[in-house]
């Protein structure tokens, strides 16, 4: 892979996506630097989930380019992107309900060799000890917060260089939200780059190095997380102040 150590890990330029004739994304350009935590905020229906789906390849790009570590993956199949190091924790968790917690996690490592999967599994158990206790239960029996842990753990098992997180705090009790955000910070400290999509703009901006604001399919604003958190428009529109 043509890797430029100083180039961004993810580079999206002029990306568009559509559902039938309805354009959901227009001219979206953004970057995630190596090791950075980037937040993407926006209202419901702004196109945040569509953007992540397009990045993962489960939704085709209508125009534009996606580069991961310099390599063009715009037309790559989802599994090729996973192999290249792009993982997603999708909205609504999408765990394999009838399968056990451990099987959910092991399937995350299906593209990786057994030895390294075993190592990452230990890391996931350490990150979420409660999952180890419940590893034989089916994922569908877990609480929402624990399913979120399964979804994050499953994505980590793919050994991502860039982790896409779609609304990880949605539907969780405030205490669990804090826990999920603590986990995200920790993953970043351990070297995983993160693109975080959130409606909970306050929490997202407080931990992000850089942030983008998406409105009706377009990027309308960007800047360092703390700067955006102080921006009058953002405060009014997304932070309710």
């Amino acid at each position: 892979m043509a890797s430029d150590p100083h180039g961004p890990l993810l580079q999206v330029s002029g990306l568009a996506a559509a559902y039938g004739r309805v354009r959901a994304l227009e001219e979206v350009s953004l970057e995630v630097a190596q090791g950075a935590l980037v937040a993407l905020i926006g209202a419901n229906g702004a196109g945040k989930t569509t953007l992540l789906r397009t990045l993962s390849g489960v939704q085709p790009a209508a125009a534009g380019a996606i580069r991961l570590d310099g390599a063009d993956i715009t037309r790559a199949r989802p599994r090729e992107r996973v192999r290249a190091g792009l993982a997603q924790v999708p909205e609504g968790r999408q765990v394999f309900g009838p399968l056990s917690v451990e099987d959910n996690l092991r399937l995350g490592g299906i593209l990786r060799d057994a030895a390294s999967s075993e190592r990452i599994l230990e890391r996931v158990w350490a990150l979420f000890p409660v999952l180890r206790e419940k590893r034989r239960l089916t994922a569908g029996m877990l609480s929402g917060g624990q399913q979120q842990m399964v979804a994050i753990g499953r994505a980590l098992m793919t050994q991502p260089r860039l982790l896409l997180l779609d609304e990880p705090s949605m539907g969780l009790a405030p205490k669990l939200v804090a826990e999920v955000f603590a986990t995200i910070r920790r993953l970043r400290e351990e070297g995983t780059s993160v693109l975080l999509v959130e409606q909970n703009a306050h929490a997202a901006l407080s931990i992000a190095d850089h942030a983008y604001v998406l409105e009706t399919g377009r990027i309308v604003m960007q800047g360092p997380g703390r700067e955006l958190a102080g921006n009058a428009q953002v405060r009014e529109a997304y932070l309710g102040m």
Partner: peptide, 14 residues
């Protein structure tokens, strides 16, 4: 089985 349980989840792990 994972494909039948959750197609999107299955695609996203490759």
């Amino acid at each position: 089985l994972a494909v039948s349980a959750n197609r999107l989840g299955a695609e996203l792990v490759g």
